[in-house]
């Protein structure tokens, strides 16, 4: 590989990670407002079985296990399925939202572990493998992966911007949204789709275990700083982009540090810095 190619890929990785970070921050603002933070955790973990299935399918079809669009599709499918399972299960007596979240997360991630062990036992799986997907690795991303991330993140961001007003109304004033005749269930579904797309877009980089941190933490930090909905979303997107980039750079600088861990710690640092501002700014009830 030539030096120029590496440079382009590095640039692609940086642009991709900032795009993902901005997306995660913005989507996270709505996810927090709708009190769905742990659904993001479920979606991240539940991508694993889909990704492993996609790997095996890719090998079986002769496309190669690490076909990026196939991995994204597989991850998104099982993540969406899991996100649907949580409310379905929580309607059962004596389970409740908390128990449903835990059961779905354990079940899907457990299935992921089983399928993952099949991939590891696969001749093609043992070398290329999916190990880097667990904690994320910007360094392991190839050109095709960067292109897939850029495409997915761009589409998701565009969707978010198109539906921004409706999502805002539902997230911050559900009763008003209902009375105004907005399709609350449809918009909630859209938010779930956006969340899953964000999580899947970020999984190569942030890893499926810690990708939830980029959804929760920058958005929580932004809530400490901003007052109005628009500004909170914008600040969350900026914080997300900056901390994601910081994570990628840090993980490149220090050998062996998984990108997901570096990003999470960068976002946590940003959150901790903003906490005192929140306490000062808050004079009125939430």
């Amino acid at each position: 590989m030539t030096a120029g190619a590496i440079g382009a890929n590095t640039l692609g990785v940086l642009v991709g990670c900032m795009l993902f970070g901005a997306l995660a921050g913005a989507v996270g603002t709505f996810v927090l407002a709708r009190r769905r933070a742990l659904v993001a955790d479920v979606a991240g973990h539940a991508a694993l079985p889909g990704v492993a299935l996609a790997f095996l399918a890719g090998e079986a079809l002769g496309l190669g296990g690490r076909t990026p669009w196939l991995l994204l599709l597989g991850g998104a499918t099982t993540a969406l399925l899991a996100a649907w399972c949580v409310p379905a299960l929580s309607r059962l007596r004596r389970i409740g939202p908390d128990g449903a979240t835990a059961v779905v997360l354990a079940g899907f991630f457990g299935l992921g572990a089983v399928l993952f062990s099949i991939v590891q036992g696969h001749p093609a799986g043992s070398q290329g493998g999916l190990r880097t997907l667990l904690f994320g690795s910007a360094a392991a991303m190839g050109r095709a992966e960067v292109v897939a991330l850029l495409a997915l993140a761009t589409v998701t961001l565009a969707l978010l911007i198109v539906f921004l007003r409706g999502l805002t109304v539902v997230a911050f004033d559900e009763d008003f949204a209902r009375s105004a005749g907005l399709p609350v269930r449809g918009l909630d579904l859209l938010l779930t789709v956006l969340l899953v797309a964000t999580v899947v877009a970020g999984m190569q980089m942030a890893g499926i275990v810690l990708v939830v941190a980029m959804v929760i933490t920058p958005a929580a930090a932004a809530r400490n700083l901003g007052g109005r909905i628009g500004s909170v979303t914008a600040i969350a997107a900026i914080l997300g982009a900056v901390t994601a980039a910081a994570g990628v750079i840090a993980s490149r600088a220090v050998a062996g540090v998984p990108t997901g861990a570096a990003m999470t710690l960068a976002a946590t640092a940003a959150f901790l810095i903003t906490v005192p501002f929140g306490r000062l700014a808050r004079g009125s009830p939430a």
């Binding site: 742990l38 955790d41 810690l210 929760i216 946590t268 939430a286």
Partner: peptide
């Protein structure tokens, strides 16, 4: 302190610790 719902607060803290 940050007025987060229980799930968000839990998620924020445990991802930081795990990372």
């Amino acid at each position: 302190v940050a007025r987060l719902e229980a799930g968000a607060a839990l998620g924020l803290v445990f991802t930081a610790f795990f990372a």
